[in-house]
Design a binder for these strands. Structure first.
Lengths: 378, 378
DNA sequence: AAGATCTTTGAATCCATGT
DNA sequence: AACATGGATTCAAAGATCT
């Protein structure tokens, strides 16, 4: 089977995966089933407002983005366009889905404000630092050396996907920051037309899109790109074994994207296994430790310095020592907080048990149970 | 004289330099004379004050702000505040003045959109990359490792100040980019209160403000900070021999800022000399070189590779060799362009003269004349 | 064949002054 | 105010060409 099907603009609504749709983004998104997409990646027109032509100091002419699709009458017209496609994207997003938008100072502030107005919840703004940006030839401004991505959840409070551990593990074991460094899309990666000219004026580097997908989706998730262009998002999605839906207005771009996508070989599945994720490990209740005999009711727990003590009860609650009130019985977390006078406490690391004369956090017991269940690392 | 005067909120309007004004930013800006300020640096609050309750746009208040209508209300109030202070700042700015605003994803998109709506002309967005950002403790997002500054002119087409050569010279001779790396304000630089706690929650590093002032102002220029806080902008302005006007609502901050400013010793003036800028050098006509004997009429000029030749005439024009048409006589620039078939040409660097068997650009002769006039670098 | 040098190019809101 | 003209101005990476 080919990597994609082609759906005419008039097709009935259903979420066919791995398709390139030729048509208007807003109209075509309206045909997709609601709440069907895990991630939207959007690279909308930037609304560059360029004056005359620009020449390099050697008198060569800069090939500017002067395409009609990037021209808008006014900020108001651009805002209306932005709100329309954002609303359409929001409808298609699953409740826990997220959205990335990329832009420059020409448009990103308007996009960001519209996102907030429409109820999206911004999670991060991210800076793509360009390793090899075009210089400022006239020496009149700072080199425009970055673009901005906004990452937003469909709603505040959504339980979105973020592969924290995988990113950290791939980043020398430090958290991935909001500033990313990548070179421009040049050389072999840059698609060319029959005459050898760049096929699309704003093709994005695959490495940038790969980080987006690896950070916020899982294998099998559906990624929608409403401004597919040369097909980078779809090609990367296929390589990373994500499904995609791409919408592109211009037939020539869509055609090139289809060929590009078909040439992609998905990575072996074991290359995409997520590293151990503490967050995704199955929950183990303290009561399960009691039930399974890892902790015996009546055993005394203490904090690391032995200042506070509590007794384990059969139901998995614990009772603070030297406290008479009713509320001195509760979860390991509540009682840890109460003992310290703190608002919150991680009981798993606060409370310790003595074994063979040494103190261990009860988290060690939990790890043993998980190990016995064979679910230590998913 | 002290570095500042204190002007009560009810004082009459006049631009007294080097003052810290206690009062409301918008009201106090309205008292300043219009078109009197070269640069506005603003670090506005990003919290939304509504109904007496202080809301912070971080996810810790998810339950409180999951209603889109509430969000809109909050954003609308923030937008109104933003427009009001931006309009007041715009009135005070000189026509060729510029404005910097710093913010995070919570507010910067709204500020940027408002700037554009009000007619400001964005010159750059700039990323302050934090060398030592606070990690994301819960591992649910990318480390928020940057803040964004927007640099905007009062109007499109304005002739703003940009010390391009100085920035480039201080950056290993490559032009300054839009991504800046600075550590947070910590250690000795961070102001503390009597109890040893940080005086102000968002004190900015002086190095960041210094780059702002060094890039977009000249010594003696007036810098206005409508949200002065702990006084960083004013202190840096004084050190760099710029004048300042600071407005701060809270007396405690203003008091601390005044003490801080008074302790600043301005840098020696020669530490602030701008490097030579070809743009600002006095004009010298080619005819002056002929008149002053630096070039003799009849001498032959060639390009660097000896492909084209021309003869110097007594009136400061040159005549292309092997060209008969009338238009083969003209300025060094026109003839350089004509020789190459180019639209434009800098004749000073294109044409060369032979001296003692070596070719020199005629720009060298111009430098000699300037040197003799004592105006090599103004 | 290997290294040195030249050429090309990239989402760009890119000049100043006198007539 | 429109127009003509002087003359100031670029960094990194990839590919092509030359030594």
């Amino acid at each position: 089977m080919a990597a994609h099907d082609i759906v005419p603009a008039g097709a009935p609504a259903r979420l066919a995966r791995d398709q390139v749709i030729v048509g208007d983004s807003i109209a075509e998104m309206a045909r997709l089933p609601e709440k069907s997409v895990d991630l939207v990646f959007a690279d909308p027109p930037y609304n560059l407002q360029l004056g005359g032509e620009l020449k390099r100091p050697d008198e060569s002419r800069v090939d500017a983005v002067d395409d009609a699709w990037d021209q808008f009458e006014s900020f108001a017209a651009y805002d209306a366009f932005t709100r329309a496609w954002l609303l359409a994207a929001r409808r298609v997003l699953k409740p826990n889905g997220t959205l990335f938008v990329i832009g420059s100072y020409h448009n990103i502030f308007r996009v960001g404000a519209a996102l907030q107005d429409l109820g999206f919840w911004i999670l991060n703004d991210i800076v793509w630092r360009k390793a090899n940006p075009m210089p400022n030839f006239r020496g009149r401004r700072f080199t425009n050396a970055h673009e901005t991505l906004i990452w937003a959840a469909r709603d505040a409070g959504a339980k979105y996907t973020f592969n924290y551990e995988a990113l950290k593990a791939g980043n020398d074991d430090v958290q991935m920051r909001s500033d990313w460094l990548f070179p421009l899309c040049t050389g072999q990666e840059r698609l060319k037309d029959a005459a050898g000219r760049k096929l699309h004026p704003t093709q994005k580097p695959e490495a940038l899109i790969a980080r987006v997908l690896l950070s916020s989706t899982r294998p099998g998730d559906v990624v929608l790109d409403p401004f597919l262009g040369s097909g980078t998002t779809a090609a990367v999605a296929r390589r990373l074994r994500r499904s995609f839906v791409g919408i592109e207005r211009e037939e020539a771009y869509a055609e090139a994207a289809r060929a590009r996508i078909d040439a992609v070989e998905p990575l072996p599945e074991d290359a995409l296994l997520a590293p151990p994720s503490a967050r995704e490990a199955p929950r183990v209740a303290f009561s399960a430790l009691v039930e399974r005999g890892f902790v015996t009711p009546g055993v005394e727990l203490t904090d690391a310095k032995g200042r506070f003590r509590a007794v384990v009860r059969a139901d998995g609650t614990i009772a603070l020592a030297h406290a008479a009130a009713d509320r001195s019985v509760g979860s390991i977390h509540r009682m840890g907080a109460l003992a310290q006078g703190a608002e919150a406490c991680n009981g798993w690391t606060f409370w310790h048990v003595e074994e063979e004369g040494r103190l261990h956090p009860i988290d060690v017991l939990r790890a043993r149970l998980r190990s016995e269940m064979g679910i230590a690392a998913e």
